[in-house]
């Protein structure tokens, strides 16, 4: 139960962040150039992502032994989580600017110039690229978080629910979801993914964790403490 909740939560939060970024691109294209092309691009990207999930999902389930899968997915999840955590530390310390959906939206709008005559390939490709690339991260999070430990159904539900919630919110407000605390979410998800990645990579090596799945909480505490230590060290005046 605890494991299922953790997997669902990680997949939901991670997917919500990425879906928000994809939504910003689709909204920017749709509101400036019309909706037909970006919606077609979105559908094409979702179909391509579904094919990837079915193909790799089958490959993972049927071909890779459990311990190798844990080591592989754990290592990738660890690298992925550390990337998010690294960026979150730099953002928290003020070294890197925080991600701003309003600014991302304005930048995309500035690149576009009103509705295009005939078939709008620019709008189609922009939406396809945005949804596909952000969606790749959703797919990876869902497969990696749920692919080991029999948590795939919970991860898929978490990922899909996040996409639906973000899409509905986007349709309702019709502007970027700037109020989503994206940077805080990325920090939290970075800690969770790094902890899950460490847990599974070590299990793939043949290690047994004390208290089994509960030790992920301990890992999260250690990684959170390390990230706060990094923020404190970076902010120290001696560095300036």
């Amino acid at each position: 139960m605890y494991q299922t909740l953790l997997v669902f939560g990680a997949a939901f939060l991670g997917s919500a962040v990425e879906s928000t970024e994809a939504l910003t691109i689709v909204l920017a294209v749709g509101l400036t150039r019309g909706w037909r092309a970006p919606l077609l691009g979105t559908v094409a990207a979702l179909v391509a992502l579904a094919v990837l999930v079915i193909f790799f999902g089958q490959l993972i389930v049927t071909r890779i032994p459990d311990s190798a899968l844990k080591l592989l997915v754990g290592t990738l999840l660890l690298l992925f989580g550390l990337r998010w955590l690294h960026k979150a530390v730099l953002r928290s310390a003020g070294v890197v600017e925080k991600h701003d959906e309003d600014m991302a939206y304005r930048n995309t709008v500035n690149q576009l110039q009103g509705p295009a005559p005939g078939r709008d390939w620019v709008g189609f490709v922009l939406a396809l690229k945005g949804v596909f690339l952000e969606g790749l991260e959703v797919v990876f999070i869902v497969i990696a978080v749920g692919g080991t430990g029999r948590g795939l159904p919970a991860a898929v539900v978490g990922g899909l629910l996040a996409m639906v919630v973000v899409a509905v919110a986007g349709v309702v407000v019709r502007r970027p979801l700037a109020r989503v605390p994206e940077n805080t979410l990325k920090y939290a998800v970075g800690v969770i993914l790094t902890s899950l990645g460490t847990f599974w990579a070590a299990e793939g090596m043949g290690a047994s964790w004390p208290l089994d799945f509960v030790s992920i909480l301990g890992l999260a505490v250690i990684y959170f403490a390390a990230s706060r230590l990094a923020v404190v060290l970076i902010r120290r005046p001696a560095l300036a």
């Binding site: 550390l82 690294h86 730099l90 070294v95 460490t198 990684y223 390390a226």
Partner: peptide, 12 residues
Amino acid sequence: LAGQLVWFARAE
């Protein structure tokens, strides 16, 4: 793993 996170964030 936690140590390298601190080290590389500080280095960047």
